[in-house]
């Protein structure tokens, strides 16, 4: 049974080989981007990307955009 998470406000089916936040970022080809991850409303520091992805997790991927 695959995992389904809420990813940036959309329902997203996680492939079985993705088990951690870091693996999710690599799967999405975001591994070398400047970004911030929030998992279940908790901000993850860079050294916590080995956190497991669980069914129904709520993941937000956030970045910097132009602004004044």
């Amino acid at each position: 049974m695959g995992k389904t998470i809420d990813l940036n406000g959309k329902s997203y089916s996680v492939v079985p080989e993705v088990e951690t936040v870091q693996q999710l970022l690599e799967h999405l080809e975001l591994g070398n981007r400047i970004l911030i991850v929030e998992k279940n409303k908790e901000i993850l520091q860079k050294d916590s990307y080995d956190a497991p992805i669980m069914d129904r997790d709520q993941i937000e991927i956030i970045h910097f955009v132009g602004g004044g």
């Binding site: 990813l7 940036n8 956030i62 970045h63 910097f64 602004g67």
Partner: peptide
């Protein structure tokens, strides 16, 4: 300066 926003993944 920059703004912080959800990424359009």
């Amino acid at each position: 300066t920059f703004a912080v926003r959800r990424m359009n993944i």
